[in-house]
Deep mutational scan, measured.
Amino acid sequence: DNLVIALHSYEPSHDGDLGFEKGEQLRILEQSGEWWKAQSLTTGQEGFIPFNFVAKA
């Protein structure tokens, strides 16, 4: 599955970004460039995340 774990917390800075906490698990929905579309397994919310803040779970 496309699961990743957050290496750092991220505060959203643009509409459509997904904020998350360090250690949170996310499911990657789309990989494109440096911003990936993801869904939080904690909150169920979707949005874009910086790819370098996460690692394969």
Rank of each mutant, 00 (worst) to 15 (best):
D1C: 15
D1V: 10
N2Q: 10
N2S: 10
L3G: 02
L3E: 04
L3H: 05
V4R: 05
V4H: 08
V4W: 15
I5K: 04
I5P: 00
I5W: 09
A6I: 03
H8C: 15
H8T: 10
H8K: 14
S9H: 09
S9C: 09
Y10P: 02
Y10E: 00
Y10D: 00
Y10W: 12
Y10V: 06
Y10I: 04
Y10F: 12
E11H: 14
P12E: 04
P12G: 09
S13D: 09
S13A: 13
S13N: 11
S13R: 15
H14K: 14
D15L: 12
D15M: 11
D15N: 11
D15Y: 11
G16D: 09
D17F: 15
L18T: 01
L18C: 05
G19D: 01
G19N: 04
G19V: 05
G19I: 04
F20L: 04
F20D: 00
F20S: 00
F20A: 01
E21I: 13
K22P: 04
K22A: 10
G23E: 02
G23F: 06
G23L: 03
G23M: 03
G23K: 00
E24N: 03
E24F: 04
L26I: 05
R27I: 12
R27N: 05
L29N: 01
L29G: 01
L29E: 01
L29M: 07
Q31L: 06
Q31T: 11
Q31M: 14
S32K: 13
S32M: 12
G33N: 04
E34W: 14
W35G: 06
W35R: 14
W35A: 05
W36A: 09
W36T: 06
W36N: 01
K37D: 00
K37Y: 15
A38G: 05
A38I: 07
A38H: 01
Q39M: 12
Q39V: 13
Q39S: 07
Q39A: 08
S40W: 02
S40E: 00
S40H: 08
L41E: 04
L41K: 02
L41M: 11
L41F: 05
T42S: 13
T42Y: 09
T42A: 13
T43W: 02
T43C: 04
T43K: 03
G44A: 05
Q45I: 09
E46I: 15
E46Q: 12
E46N: 07
G47R: 01
G47Q: 00
G47L: 04
G47C: 06
G47K: 01
G47E: 01
F48N: 08
F48G: 02
F48Q: 06
I49V: 08
P50R: 07
P50M: 05
F51R: 15
N52D: 12
N52M: 10
V54L: 06
V54F: 08
V54C: 09
A55I: 13
A55R: 10
A55N: 06
A55G: 09
K56F: 15
K56Y: 14
K56D: 10
K56S: 12
K56G: 10
A57R: 08
A57F: 14
